[in-house]
Design a protein around this nucleic acid. Structure first.
Lengths: 223, 223
DNA sequence: TAGTGGTCTAGACCACTAT
DNA sequence: TAGTGGTCTAGACCACTAG
């Protein structure tokens, strides 16, 4: 589709609300029937690039409200304009325990990277995150400096998660968590467990506990 | 669109894979141009009712693999094969408080239905759900028996939620919650807040607190 | 080879918006 | 009133599938 790509390029970088060429104008410019132009524009409307208003015209679309998507904590906080810092508590390589092996679809005792971080938002201790990664998928992970954003690191390795199975439940702080999060033992925490896959390959198993007063898990669902 | 509804009715209840009338057959039957038929079928394909295969024909679509979707508690439990019962604690009509009015995009003091339920899974007290509904959208709601599944009731009214803004956080049980859920005051609970819309119309504002030992919120995310 | 959906032409009339 | 997108006609040729 030449017309579609022509309009896409024409419109790329334009501010939302900028008028696109009218259908009849494109008919003239390309010497093609109007139905053909409409199909090209239909595709761009479907992609969310353009918006049509009957009687007014076709315009560069305003950005879509939201996506659910699979995002990590750093990314979500960046969206909200919150600064995230991390302190590594544990970073080593261990034989996969049975539960971890099953979730990551590996053999028991194959090596996995284990990584525990205390994470702070705007300087305040907010959560403790435990992550397991199949060692074979992230060569050199422990040998280099650990990233602030795990998902950015995975993306650089071509392993950006595209699917996640999440579970959220309330728990109470154990001794280690209470110490890291600076709350009394037994305090209510939000636990977020995730099994993340890139395509059909499991890449991450994690469990994060959040201080109830410092984090709310937000979510947009669509049908 | 007469043709669209004709084909929809023709095809309703047919097994997936059943052949639909061909485009040229519909052209003849309705005496319209083929483009017109195509647009009718396009709509049904977009809805997931039909599937097209070039060179073979048009068929009743196979059910889509999975959706995240906007589902209610009863529906989610039904999926998991768990029996849900409800006991209404409060069901009345009140002037919308400011926060509720804002979330439901109503004028302050317009009437809203307020509904508090204690809900049990397989006979065990599991959560307390507080719901606000714009009274104008659910006429007769309080006058009839309240449904077990709110979402089934909304669906019957043509108000099935298609979008939800959810927030999950850990909280501690207050006196009323501890009594209804049979846990000590201060116990950790999972709080799930939701603002649900049907299209662009807000239809539900709710806050549900779950016993930590009896409910995990599960979620599948896709890119 | 006959039938299917995919794409295209060269017009037409309509309801709507902005001036 | 001029211009826009929405819808429609009555054909046409193509690539593909199935018998």
């Amino acid at each position: 589709m030449v017309i579609r790509e022509y309009v896409r390029a024409l419109v790329a970088g334009c501010d939302p609300g900028t008028a696109a060429p009218s259908e009849r104008e494109l008919v003239e410019r390309f010497g093609v029937a109007r139905m053909t132009v409409r199909q090209a524009l239909d595709a761009l409307v479907g992609e969310g690039v353009l918006e049509r208003f009957p009687g007014r015209g076709t315009f560069v679309a305003h950005p879509r409200p939201r996506r659910t998507g699979v995002v990590g904590f750093s990314e979500e906080m960046a969206r909200r304009g919150v600064a995230v810092t991390s302190r590594t508590v544990v970073a080593d390589r261990i034989p996969a325990p049975p539960g971890v092996a099953r979730a990551l679809e590996m053999q028991v005792d194959q090596p996995v990277v284990r990584w525990r971080r205390m994470r702070a938002t705007d300087g305040y201790a907010t959560c403790v995150a435990d992550v397991f990664l199949p060692d074979a998928l992230v060569p050199g992970f422990l040998e280099a400096d650990q990233p602030v954003s795990l998902y950015a690191d995975l993306e650089a390795r071509g392993l950006r998660p595209t699917r996640a199975e999440d579970a959220l439940v309330a728990v109470t702080a154990d001794a280690a968590e209470s110490s890291l999060l600076e709350v009394p033992i037994g305090s209510a925490l939000l636990q977020h467990s995730r099994r993340a896959l890139c395509g059909t390959v499991p890449v991450e198993l994690s469990r994060t506990v959040y201080r109830a007063d410092r984090h709310t898990f937000r979510l947009h669902l669509y049908d």
